[in-house]
Design a protein around this nucleic acid. Sequence first.
RNA 1: GGCCCCAUCGUCUAGAGGCCUAGGACACGGCCCUCUCAAGGCUGAAACACGGGUUCGAAUCCCGUUGGGGCCA
Length: 466
Amino acid sequence: MRVRFAPSPTGHLHVGSAHTALFNWLYARHHGGAFILRIEDTDRSRSTDDNIASIIEALRWLDIDWDEGPPTPGYRQTERFDLYRAQAQHLLAAGGAYYCDCPPEQLERERKAAEARKETFRYSGRCRQRGLTAGALRLRMPDEGATVVNDLIHGAVTFEHRQLDDWILVRSDGTPTYNFSVVVDDVTMGITHVIRGNDHLSNTPKQIVCYEALGYPVPEFAHVAMILGPDRSRLSKRHGATSIQAFRDAGFLPEAMVNYLARLGWSHGDQELFSREELIELFDIKDVAPSAAIFDHSKLEWLNQQYLKRMDGGQLAQLAAPILAAAGLGRGRDPVWLSRVMDTLKERARTLRELVEVGRFYFERPEEYEPKAAARLFTAEGARRLALLIDELRTKGDFEPGSLEQLYRDLASRLGVGLVDLAQLTRLAITGRTASPPLFEVLALLGREETADRLRAALAAIGGER
RNA sequence: GGCCCCAUCGUCUAGAGGCCUAGGACACGGCCCUCUCAAGGCUGAAACACGGGUUCGAAUCCCGUUGGGGCCA
């Protein structure tokens, strides 16, 4: 079996497109078939090479690989015009198509009239017998009966032929229409299963008639439900980030993205987490749901965190490196140290970006202290305790989490206060915040010198305020 | 407007006539754990759009209504 993903390079790879690409890819990998990438760039005004590069980059990032497609020549529609012309001539010769020179204005009038009668506009077919040799090329459609699309997801969907008219295959300027070029491409590429968005279901009966007129077998069809925004309209830019790159840049992992997209419209019992191998093994079209799904950002974030948590510190350090660098942090740091830092952060962030934000204090001293907490903790009593801590931390122990905790516990009981009192005071002084990874790990990672410096800075800040 | 698709908690979904007192997950609330925040564990609230059939029995089958989406312009 052979499937294809055929994006129009009019923008970045949209999550909806990525969704159908993934379903095609999973289907091919599951059944050991071929996955083909084809670029539908007939709309020359909106298609750009940059967009093609961007789509390819996004697919690579998702690790969706193709068996045939760019950069091999012949997989862009603009390179295939000879094929469309040849098939059009073939149809014309066989009598399946005919030229039409009806002026657009007249067609428009008829369309309006049909609308006024509350009927479907259907081209009259008046040029059918005229034997013209130029104009727009129309496909001769049956006047009666119906075409049934046997969809793998929706079952049998019937379209009455009186709703379908002789549609244009090739415009009078010689360019093929979308529906025609798709059929020719799928036929010449030997596509056996067309898995695409539900928005193409209405086009399918026209295409089926074209396959038959051309004398080729009709492939299987599977129309996957669309992805909607929170307001139930088609997911678009006004709902926020929609391109795969945008999610990558926001700090999502490709594994999480693939897992999330796979679970949109597909499921396998109660399971939520799937490795790539599991997806390939378990995915099947028969388990794909027919109804549209709303894109849920918070579930994606949760999934991303699940993957973050399972990753080791070293990997995370590499993945976070670009974000760290962009924030001007972490330059020249020891990889082992960075890896330990990441291990303390990964359970506290849903994205790589958040991870860097949460761990910012590891790389630079706090510029300010949370005001409410400072008012509560940075008091005269707080200053006394800080001074005591500075003194204690200067010499005692080996500055490892275990001994640091012991030191704090001892001091707390000596002062007759809770561990929490000393911990929060220190946390605020060290990170500027009241929430952070476990304090003693943080202190150990920062080291004796840095810890002492930050505590002294906090002490000075208290003094300065009073 | 015509045609087509869709309809289970707020969201993703399980459910293929009796297993359903409708299950899981996200999000939300509570409790536990705990140096904070998380993570984790336990727990709570939360849905079969509506109306007719079919059947001993319907979330599941059929019809209609309503609502949402798409295609054609």
